[in-house]
Amino acid sequence: MTGRAVNNTIQTDDSPDLDWYIDRIVQVLMFIGGISAIVLIIGIFIFVTREGISFIFNDLDFAEFFASPRWRPTSEWRATYGILALIVGTASITGLAMMIAIPFSLGSAIFISEFATGKYKEYLKVLVELLAAIPSVVWGFIGLTIMNPLIIQIFNVPVGLNVLNAGLILGLMAAPIITSIAEDALKAVPDGFREAAEAMGATKWQVIYKVVLPAAKNGLLGAVLLGVGRGFGETMAVLMASGHAINLPENIFDSVRALTATIAAELGETAVGSVHYQSLFTIGIFLFLITFMINLTADLVVRGVKKG
């Protein structure tokens, strides 16, 4: 083979070849993969609604559903479907968990992002990542076997499976997640901001408080919202550590029951298509919509920071 001849033949064929067709086909396949996430999220809504829809149209009494604390789907003489106690249960556990998790996570994120350096920082980040990986059923087991006797002993209460227990467990679960998202948000603040403030003679804390935190505000809010969403939807740990008693709690030592835990505990015992079964799917729709809104808000909040 020699170099190309001077008067080479000019290629004027512009018709698609095999590679062109393969490229087109792959592009279509990738597009299908791309929209699969949308198809699936819509699919989740449709299939959960499909199982619960008949309850919503035939049996659902909105006032009772949201305002009654009586969840008695298996009652012989009059079944009632009030999820107020479950909402309060979920809210009290999530609320306590966030009261614990948010300050500690944000503090940890600030420490890891702004104070820790080098290997030390890497180790902490790895540790946080590993903590976030502990499965929820293991957390539930910890609540059941380790926290339960501890709470009984320390606070001298009859039952250790309660809002406090589930809230602590959930707080410990959510904290590493909030920490790592918040740390990302802090990391996203350009170093130039910090250097400029330091050049003006600001102390480290002033830099963090006056420059870094305001700049990362939306990202941090997004982290907190995602933590709330995560806590709200947590199932196994809450099921095992909350005491699972239908109750409007008066203090943190009362047992409660969460929305998610109710589905997990009862779905296995219902007949497919029964009113009870459908009511559990209705709770599922409710959960889906709430978490969808939380995630949407978090996304909008974080997107806001990127634009600004």
Binding site: G34, I35, A37, I38, L40, I41, G43, I44, F47, V48, R50, E51, S136, L226, G229, R230, F232, G233, E234, T235, M236, T260, I263, A264, L267, L280, F281, G284, L287, F288, T291, F292, I294, N295, L296, A298, D299
Partner: peptide, 22 residues
């Protein structure tokens, strides 16, 4: 699509279970 991915990760696991059943 990006929003759907965030939501897919954020939907409670028990709702995924209901979806799986349905």
């Amino acid at each position: 699509i990006n929003l759907a991915i965030v939501n897919l990760a954020g939907v409670p696991s028990i709702v995924h279970a209901l979806f799986g059943v349905g």
